[in-house]
């Protein structure tokens, strides 16, 4: 963005952190990365990327509506994302075979939400610069109080996730057996969608509605590619997300291109590397000795 890069990295970091907004950006980025990596891990496991993307996108009309109504943007994000999560949970899914129906429902919700966002912007009087910021976000200009709110919301989301984590994992891996054991799988699914909505609302305030998805899907997908054990995979997911966000912030500060581009490129690069590594290892014949790792 603004900095002058030298090859002395420590001096660079010191220089970058002398700017107050970059310090706040790192704080917010760290919170968002941990949250997205943990919630996203379950999202990838449950094959709900489409729902996750939809909830992320819904933040855009939420923010547009809040701007139009003169409310704080955060209310719009949380209000719309949580409402959309309830809508997706309430509309028909038709059991396991009815996944077809659900994908149509989610697609409709998403398109309609975006169209509504378009309407709110038209009603507001078409301030186009603001639209780009809502869609693509900006790490700059984050205030201390915003970081505090982010942290509180993240802690609340993670506490709930920790409480339902074990049954949710069971229900995600084998829904039928979990239901047979008396777990309320449908209620767990709804609760998880709400958590996903809250996370999307939180993250999209920083990354913009269109790019939340990169943080939600790529680090967890990379982690699940590398290991099948839940605890190791969750930890790896968080680590990857943190590295992605930190490096992206650092590079974006010293380059003219936006944070969203670096964020997605680094995350995708890590995913491709992991994919190549796993595929290469399988081809070298270690598959015979580590069937689970290669299959994951």
């Amino acid at each position: 963005m603004t900095g002058v890069f030298s090859w002395n990295l420590i001096a660079d970091i010191r220089d970058m952190w002398s700017v107050a907004f970059m310090v706040n950006a790192f704080r917010a980025g760290t919170i968002v990365a941990v949250l997205a990596a943990l919630v996203g891990w379950f999202m990838v496991l449950r094959r709900q990327s489409f729902a996750g993307h939809t909830l992320a996108v819904v933040g855009f009309p939420g923010a547009a509506a809040a701007v139009w109504a003169g409310l704080g943007v955060a209310y719009g994000y949380f209000g719309f994302c949580l409402a959309a999560a309830l809508v997706i949970a309430a509309l028909p899914q038709r059991g396991n075979r009815g996944y077809t129906e659900q994908s149509a429902v989610i697609g409709t919700v998403q398109a309609f939400a975006l169209a509504a966002g378009m309407l709110f912007i038209a009603l507001y009087g078409g301030f186009l610069g603001g639209t780009s910021a809502l869609l693509f976000g900006s790490f700059l200009g984050i205030t201390q109080s915003q970081v505090l709110i982010l942290a509180l919301a993240a802690v609340a989301t993670l506490v709930v996730l920790a409480l339902i984590g074990r049954p949710l994992l069971f229900a995600s891996i084998d829904t039928d057996v979990a239901r047979a054991h008396g777990l309320p799988t449908r209620a767990l699914g709804t609760a998880f969608l709400l958590l996903l909505g809250a996370t999307a609302a939180e993250v999209s305030q920083i990354t913009g509605a269109l790019l939340v998805f990169a943080l939600l899907v790529l680090p967890p997908a990379t982690a699940q590619l590398l290991t099948a054990r839940p605890a190791a995979s969750l930890t790896l997911s968080v680590a990857l997300a943190l590295v992605t966000v930190w490096v992206a912030l650092f590079v974006a500060y010293y380059s003219p291109y936006p944070i969203g581009f670096w964020l997605t490129t680094i995350a995708f690069g890590l995913y491709v590397l992991a994919y190549a590594a796993v595929a290469g290892r399988a081809r070298l014949g270690t598959r015979a000795t580590h069937p689970i790792a290669a299959g994951a």
Binding site: V44, S49, H53, L210, L211, F213, A214, V217, L218, A221, G260, F261, W262, L263, T264, T265, A267, F268, Y271
Partner: peptide, 9 residues
């Protein structure tokens, strides 16, 4: 999801 997140970026 992966391809598409990157393409958006």
């Amino acid at each position: 999801g992966g391809v598409f997140a990157w393409v958006l970026g």
